[in-house]
Structures are given as structure tokens and as C-alpha cells.
Design a protein around this nucleic acid. Structure first.
Lengths: 114, 114
DNA sequence: CGACTCGTACGATAGCTGTCGTAGTACGGT
DNA sequence: ACCGTACTACGACAGCTATCGTACGAGTCG
């Protein structure tokens, strides 16, 4: 789980999910600066690490944060983590949630161009 | 920081540091199932991610958990994390802290043999 | 039906990283 | 002086993984 959450892109997804008042968002709701393939990859990692739940709801695939399960396993962890991410976000970037997440000096692969 | 803590070996180090009533332990106090080179590597990652503090105390190098700094930056995170690790530890392995950490099916490199 | 959108699967690629071994430095004991 | 301990630096290697592109199936709309 720590590994899953230690990627900026995935942490961003989780934060958006947690911020969403409703609890389920479609994959395409997220406007991530990566291709669809990569998005699928990240959602899979999150699902396989038990952080989110994915269900087909008619035509779209809804993603839900498994908050209760996580809280049962690791009480307080998710909350503290989200709070920490929020604090760091507001400390570094101005825009709250819209942090670039690995702007420029990414550590791996290309990000978008080509 | 999440990345630093998402490695079993490093989490183990941090847990031992946190468990130590005194706050500073020498590198060699830890009996990790890896070579000294790898140990140095992990300590460096922990130091560079700001989780621990290293000071030369005479001949030995003492490692201290930067608990207060971390708590200031991410209130409650470290506590929740350690608690979660403890719970998971007692759930999976019997021996509390002495979990093998990547026994057998490690994902990378060889572990010891050769 | 055809076109479009959403999401997946597969293969490729580059970079990170955990691990090791060997060699080196600093320091204290014999 | 010599050796042992503690730790680091550097190089090598294998595996993971974040990313991309392309191709594909499912479903919706004109």
C-alpha cells in the first residue's frame, strides 16, 4: 500500500477520490497528464494494492476509495496521509489539488511528448 | 518520504528506531539480512528523504529518527504508519518485529547467496 | 451501420533501485 | 607497526516500473 501511494500520480488519484464528496468517480473524470494506458496501469496498481474498488456501473467504470477497509486495517493512516499530502500541497504549490506532480524532472520515461 | 518507507528493509529500520526507547542507534546495531553496502544504501535513502538523522558520535555513526520534524510536517502520519506496521506485523508474522521481510520471493537481485 | 468514446491488453523503452562485491578511509586495540 | 571494526564509495547486475504507442472490444449516438 505504501508503495502504491508513493507514486505522485497515484497519490493524486487517491486525493481526488478522497476529495470527491460522492464516493465514486469514473476513470475518465481524472485529467491526468499521462496517456490512457498509463492511467489504466495506475488504476490497476491501486486496485491490486487494495486502495480502491472498481465496479462496472453500466457503461462506465466507477472507482471508489476503500476508505472503510483501509481504516479497519490501518486506523488513521489514510487520514493522516491525506492530511499530510494536503499540507504539503498547499506548502509547495499554490493550487491546492492541481499540483503538477513530477513537472519536468520526472524520473522515468517521457511524459507526454513524442 | 512514502517512497523511502515503502521498502520493507527501510520500514524495518524505522520501526526498530522508533521502538528503541533511547533515540539513537548505531548502524551496526541492526542485524539486517543484507550486506553492509546495502545497509549503507538504505540509510542513505532514509537520510536523504529526511526520515532519519545521522551523526558521527566518536567512532560510530548514530542514527536518530527525526520524529519531531516529521510530526511537524505530517502530523500523525508517522504514528499511524508505525501503528499500521505493527498491526500488520503481528497479523502476518508471529515474531512481532522479527519479520523476514521479503523472504524467498524477493523482487530484486539476490539476497545474500553467492 | 459508422463513428466516437472509454477502457484494456500487449509490447517496447528508459530509468530507477535493491542487491552484491571489492576496495578504500578512519579509528582504536594489540 | 599491524590488524580488526565501522562505514563509505564505486561499479555491476537483474528486476521492477512508469511511460508510451498501437490495436482491440464494449457501448453510445447520429
Amino acid at each position: 500500500m505504501l508503495h502504491a501511494l508513493s507514486d505522485p500520480m497515484r497519490l493524486r488519484i487517491v486525493r481526488e477520490l478522497a476529495a470527491g464528496s460522492g464516493d465514486e468517480l469514473s476513470c475518465s473524470h481524472f485529467d491526468l497528464p499521462v496517456t490512457k494506458s498509463t492511467t489504466t496501469h495506475h488504476f490497476r496498481v491501486l486496485r491490486e494494492s487494495g486502495v480502491i474498488r472498481q465496479v462496472y456501473r453500466g457503461t462506465a467504470k466507477m472507482n471508489g476509495l476503500r476508505r472503510d477497509d483501509l481504516d479497519a486495517l490501518f486506523p488513521g493512516l489514510l487520514g493522516a496521509l491525506l492530511a499530510a499530502a494536503d499540507r504539503q500541497s498547499t506548502r509547495l504549490g499554490v493550487a491546492g489539488l492541481n499540483r503538477p506532480a513530477r513537472e519536468g524532472g520526472g524520473r522515468t520515461g517521457r511524459v507526454r511528448p513524442r
